[in-house]
């Protein structure tokens, strides 16, 4: 039993905290009535995931998660919702009574399968550290091993930028 007053004990506690934050955020995101609250839940969920990344020894990914998902994606979503949403909250009613039970069944099977997989797998710690995940390592792998995916992602981003510009132009002419 590790004492709570050591670094290991506290970090173990924080680990469970991050799991809790992730789950709570996910539940808020899916069950909140107002869209903005859902996005707030999503941001909370992303923060929890960032914390888990930190525990997986990749602080770079963790901080990028905060910078991109919390700082950019969530802000963009809120901005879009603020411009688009009418203040009345629409009650979503499902047409078919079977939808609810079926959804529960599907998610239950998924949870069961994932939990079974997690429990049956023999977890081994990594044999060695590939690299320290510094900016230098990252740049080298982006421009050598993963240069193809890097180029493809930049093309996708370019298409998105040009596409949004075209859409905005079309809107302005009206």
């Amino acid at each position: 039993m590790v004492s709570l007053l050591t670094v290991e004990g506290l970090s173990g506690l924080l680990f469970f905290g991050f799991i809790g934050i992730t789950l709570a955020g996910a539940i808020i995101a899916t069950s909140a009535r107002s869209l903005i609250r859902s996005v707030a839940g999503l941001a909370l969920c992303f923060l929890g995931v960032a914390g888990l990344y930190y525990y997986l020894n990749s602080p770079f990914v963790a901080l990028m998660q905060i910078l991109i998902y919390v700082g950019a994606v969530c802000v963009t979503i809120i901005f879009a919702v603020m411009l688009a949403e009418s203040s009345e909250l629409k009650q979503i009613t499902s047409r078919n009574g079977l939808v609810g039970p079926l959804a529960f069944l599907a998610s239950g099977i998924l949870v069961f399968a994932l939990a079974g997989l997690a429990l049956k797998t023999e977890w081994r710690p990594a044999l060695c550290m590939v690299n320290r995940g510094t900016v230098e390592n990252l740049g080298q792998s982006l421009l050598t091993t993963y240069s193809m995916s890097f180029e493809l992602i930049s093309v996708v981003l370019l298409v998105a930028v040009v596409g949004s510009l075209v859409l905005a132009r079309a809107g302005r002419d009206k």
Partner: peptide
Amino acid sequence: AFASVNVL
């Protein structure tokens, strides 16, 4: 990263 949360 932390500064970007401020806007939120």
